[in-house]
């Protein structure tokens, strides 16, 4: 299978995401001005500071030409994974519910967190163990949604790094094919950096694509 990793001006986790995805399949970068998704099976919107995060995190990236293609891809059931800034972009673009606000303590947070996988019935978590140890690094990670959402990941008790509502760390859309999370699975794929738990997310996607599991 082939992953496409989007690169905006200001993205900084694109190469890590590409290397992580390349451990389970092919992975190539997609430029923000390019509408062509090059036939990829899954799209990753990686972390960073797209367009400087001016105005609000993710607010301007949602209007990039490539995002029109991503929205269309998602509507057709394509798998889309948004990590950190990618999660913010997917919320701003309306592909995911809710919004991300500045951390309740106003500080940048960078630490390993324990996550409870509360929904294994998604293409992104089907091969995940019950808990994951993955780092977070963000200033704008406090999830907020006025309506009930489909929660996939929660920070384990005592691990909420940002004041996120109901300890929410990751959510999927109603159709189940768009997933956003604040923690960085692409930074947890090699024992050298302390954890390989992030690989399970990429492996789940590969398994879902290879089995062509129909999206609900």
């Amino acid at each position: 299978m082939k992953f496409g990793v989007i690169r905006f001006p200001g993205t900084c986790d694109d190469v890590d995401a590409q290397l992580a995805a390349a451990r389970v399949g092919e992975a190539e970068l997609l430029w923000h001005r390019d509408r062509d998704l090059k036939g990829v099976d899954a799209v990753i919107v990686p972390g960073g500071f797209s367009y400087g995060d001016y105005l609000r995190a993710g607010a301007i990236a949602r209007f990039a030409p490539v995002m029109e293609s991503v929205v269309e891809f998602a509507r057709e059931g394509g798998l889309v994974l948004g990590i950190c800034n990618g999660f913010q972009i997917l919320c701003e673009s309306g592909l995911l519910p809710g919004a991300l606000l500045v951390n309740n303590h106003l500080k940048f947070v960078f630490r390993q967190v324990q996550l409870d996988v509360v929904d294994h019935n998604t293409p992104f978590t089907r091969t995940c163990p019950p808990t994951l140890s993955i780092p977070v690094k963000h200033t704008t990670g406090r999830y907020y949604a006025p309506e009930p959402v489909q929660v996939v990941l929660r920070y384990a008790p005592g691990h909420n790094p940002n004041g996120s509502q109901d300890d929410i760390a990751g959510v999927v859309n109603n159709a189940g094919n768009v997933f956003g999370l604040m923690p960085h699975p692409e930074h947890a794929v090699d024992a050298l950096t302390g954890s390989t738990d992030g690989l399970a997310i990429f492996e789940s996607i590969r398994a879902a694509v290879s089995e062509r599991i129909p999206v609900a």
């Binding site: 105005l55 607010a59 301007i60 209007f63 701003e92 809710g98 919004a99 606000l101």
Partner: peptide, 8 residues
């Protein structure tokens, strides 16, 4: 559409 996020 852009300058504010009406949700928040």
């Amino acid at each position: 559409r852009l300058l504010a996020n009406p949700l928040i």
